[in-house]
Design a protein around this nucleic acid. Sequence first.
DNA 1: ATAAACTTTGCAACCCGGTTGCAGGAACAT
DNA 2: ATGTTCCTGCAACCGGGTTGCAAAGTTTAT
Lengths: 137, 137
Amino acid sequence: MKENIDKQLQARNIKPTTMRQLVLQVLTVQKTAISLPELENKFEKADKATLYRTLKTFEENKLIHSIDDGTGSVKYALCREACECHPEDLHVHFSCTVCGQTYCLTDIPVPKIHLPAQFQLESVNMVVKGICSNCDK
Amino acid sequence: MKENIDKQLQARNIKPTTMRQLVLQVLTVQKTAISLPELENKFEKADKATLYRTLKTFEENKLIHSIDDGTGSVKYALCREACECHPEDLHVHFSCTVCGQTYCLTDIPVPKIHLPAQFQLESVNMVVKGICSNCDK
DNA sequence: ATAAACTTTGCAACCCGGTTGCAGGAACAT
DNA sequence: ATGTTCCTGCAACCGGGTTGCAAAGTTTAT
């Protein structure tokens, strides 16, 4: 496990500090996307700023991607192994209005959009809101 | 003009107070979506809370819709005349990373997504980021 | 092994958008 | 005019995000 964590960090050129190992550990276990405040709560004693910068580092190095699900706090989730976060790599996200969980629908790519003339595409954020399978019972 | 503004308010069952007329006026003139802080700046002397509640009222009554473009402040834009903000009414939005403007691409409907079993759709927020035609020159 | 250079961490403070409580004021019905 | 309801303005607050700075840790050169 531990070696796997380090491998993932090194594969993205991120120095494997203790803090980063711990955060990546949490992100690996976590099945849904997680916000900075939620991440804070996963640790007994952790500094918001450090976690914040850790997430930023991970995001810059494309180990994780961010999702703005409209709940007021940006969420983060692991990227696929070889993900480069290009528009064609992106998938749809689902935000449950009951439990607040945000899911990566990795099987559902973001549909291609034909933009008006002179509009250049860089990225897309597509969030579907509704009730997830857990809350639907 | 003035009568038109009042008609629009009444059509949505919103009492036409002076404040509301002024805000709707601004939203009508405005071609791109506008945030609460931006709206504040359009007035010499205006109370944030009042503008906030005005926008909320407009949104509840489907006179305007909100867009979370990921810039940190939610933006608002007028709905089409008969809009009910149902999933099939929704269009794609474009957020320019250069000038910060957010456009309603009213001609581009949000593509239908086939969700996994037991996931119920309520609404969709789809924001394309890139460079707009103005900044592309 | 030691010093210098750089990176990461932790604390504190701050910024800003969003939101609420409350009291005064306007509109409206009786 | 009186009471009721709705709207407005002020103030204060909340919470996520972000930055400055100094201490601690790590790397590199000598």
